[in-house]
Amino acid sequence: MTPVVEVRRAQRGASKPARDEILGRVRSALAGVEPDREPVAAPPGVRAADLVARFAERVADYRATVVHRAPGDVAVSVAAALPSGARVVVPPGLPDDLRAAVAGAVVDDGLSAAELDEIDAVVTCCRVAIAETGTIVLDHAPDQGRRAVTLVPDRHVCVVRAHQVVADVPDAVAVLDPERPLTWISGPSATSDIELDRVEGVHGPRVLHVIVVEETG
């Protein structure tokens, strides 16, 4: 770590006059302005009666595929979401019931970007899902893998457990840990840069397949 520490020391030294001057300018710009101490309390989010149904409806709006399954059928659904012969990568912490569905999959152990580019699909879990916006959030824990794993392959199969679905954005922000890298995904990658015509599939996975697992009992 020495080089980074040296770099840091050198550069902080170099930009110290800039730092002091900017902070000085800020202080004189704010002379006589009282800071607000209390965090802002935002209004509550929307809370649908049936969170899982709302989540599925909103995911489908983004032209992602979404299916509901009972716990016993998850493995079958995962296998069905993968085209035959697809090369699949999975994160090292994928639960056993899902791992069984992708027996031939490569387990990510730090694959290079070029190696990931040769792979067709990835199967992961998620940290939380947001009903109102149809969003899945990854915090890149071992059952979801590094960020690159869910980015480079063209098809992302994501398993969402019904208890992971929260109502709206504030509920998700409350449970997420900002110290972890987070990826919020709302449908497949898309662009509207050409005449505002929406096109699904640019650089991120062009296919997003969400499997919602209903809990029993």
């Binding site: 209004p43 909103r58 709006d61 954005v169 972890r180 919020w184 497949p188």
Partner: peptide
């Protein structure tokens, strides 16, 4: 603060692209 990001993440995509949420939001610390 992290919690105060919430209203901004609700306001931005609806105002900007007219979506409930934009396809990707990345955060890193």
């Amino acid at each position: 603060t992290w919690a105060e990001l919430d209203p901004l993440l609700r306001l931005l995509p609806r105002s900007s692209t007219g979506e409930r949420m934009n396809p990707y939001t990345s955060t890193w610390s």
